[in-house]
Amino acid sequence: MNVPTDHLLALSAILFALGVLGFLVRKNVIIVLASIELMLNAANLSFLAASRHWSQTTLAGQGDPSAGPIFAIFVILVAAAEAAVGLALVIALYRLKQTVALDGMAELRG
């Protein structure tokens, strides 16, 4: 695949922007969590694009471009942990308030 790195990064930026938009605009907790997953995926894509760029350009041979995939693995791991905790919180909050809308949640008075 001879797609320039710019295009991969642009795709990553678009996905991240959409994730931020969903995170800020939506009120349903589950959609907010889905937006967070979207942002983490965008970050993963840019890690991999950078790793690919590293292995293809003049930098090839120095260091290890495998850092990209390793960070992507860690990001996936953290995303899994985050989703599990986030959804457990959703269940706890639903039990408390019978809703998943973020409007009425001000328990922490933040």
Partner: peptide, 11 residues
């Protein structure tokens, strides 16, 4: 699919 194309089959 994009990861596959970019050369990251394991990912």
């Amino acid at each position: 699919g994009i990861y596959l194309l970019a050369g990251f089959p394991f990912l």
